[in-house]
Design a protein around this nucleic acid. Structure first.
Lengths: 203, 203
DNA sequence: GATAAAATGGACCCGCAAGTCCAAACCGGG
DNA sequence: CCCGGTTTGGACTTGCGGGTCCATTTTATC
């Protein structure tokens, strides 16, 4: 079982590990660092994560995956107006601006993505969830005629998601946010353009 | 100095390390694996890469960065017609289809990207080079009137690059290439669309 | 407040992998 | 064929970090 105190400790360990990754990356991550930061002991880590490091990392990844979606709310869930899209765009930029150079999720995915099926499933679920929200937003805008109905909503959502992802990746490796902004703005311009044949100014 | 034989060995070590990363990722990479695969000895690795593992990884990253651009040629250097763009698009898809789940470059960048300034410079240079080629292609198409002149060529190139990068990232973590394709096709559709105000069918 | 379960502390073990070292083999030029 | 440097082999050291173990303390429940 798990008492309230135990649950709190477990949570503290996950958060501490995530913070550690954000600061130093996963390559430098040791259980001892986590232990020190969270004021716990080795035995606690293994008590709450019997599978050891991998088990803990998976929990961190799950937490971070949730956070990714959370941080885009309430905008992501309500992309019904151009203003909402713009707010969402700004939320994404702001989120990753603050994130810093290490993305716990991205690193975790590339690190244990292929090794553990559980991690792979987590990734797939996040992408699906994110893409579904974008798809719903696009479809809704199409219903009101604000977005060209000839667009394939799902495919466009996939492209938009890829653009964001790529912008973030470049941000992580260069520290510059210009690509993420360009990717978002260009993608949104595509949505805004030529509604049912009517041309529109780009940008 | 470095004799022909020495240079060959050095090259063999780099290629072997890259192959090892492609197969098993960087987390699992050990000097012993490389040693075994390349039929060399520990001392050779340190002889040719005095800085040890990090030194070697940097060399691998440099090699892979070159390869990324190479593999997109000759298309990337000659984006003067829609056919050329399409060929380039196909080359990119094919390249990453074959690459497998591990991208030596991507992994290396996220792994030692921030730790070593040299790696960071390498990344910046690759992105700049890649983006410049795309920018040149877009600008050229604008000159002939085949792409809307109101587009900011550099910013659009940045967005396109981000889209590709994101598609690749998603491919690496899910094994599915659909996002890369959607990202490329959607981005190219944007370029093709509404030339100087004339609407165009999307997709 | 007794008792069982949960939580915690921290010493210890152990294997692995990076890096060191030295001696041997090889090779090119005089 | 001999001498400098280069290349190679592989044993050895070393430290780090994941994981184990058990004793102790705390907490929940009756």
């Amino acid at each position: 079982m798990l008492t309230a105190k135990g649950a709190a400790t477990r949570r503290r360990i996950i958060e501490g590990a995530a913070a550690e990754i954000r600061e130093n990356g996963i390559a430098a991550l040791t259980l001892d660092d986590i232990r020190a930061r969270t004021s716990t002991s080795k035995s606690q880590i293994f008590h709450y994560f019997p599978g050891g490091k991998e088990d803990l990392l998976l929990a961190v990844a799950a937490r971070e995956a949730d956070r990714v979606i959370e941080d885009q709310q309430p905008h992501l869930g309500d992309l019904t107006t151009w203003q909402a899209w713009q707010d969402w765009r700004n939320a994404v930029v702001r989120r990753y601006e603050q994130q810093g150079v290490h993305c716990p999720l991205g690193v975790l995915m590339t690190e244990l993505g292929r090794s553990t099926p559980a991690a792979q499933a987590l990734t797939a679920r996040l992408i699906e969830q994110w893409q579904a929200a974008l798809r719903a937003g696009i479809a809704g805008m199409q219903a009101t005629g604000e977005v060209d109905r000839r667009l394939d909503a799902d495919r466009t959502a996939a492209a938009l998601l890829a653009a964001v992802q790529g912008g973030v990746t470049i941000l992580m490796s260069t520290g510059r946010i210009t690509h993420l902004e360009a990717a978002l703005d260009t993608s949104l311009a595509l949505l805004r353009q030529s509604v049912d044949g009517e041309p529109n100014v780009i940008g």
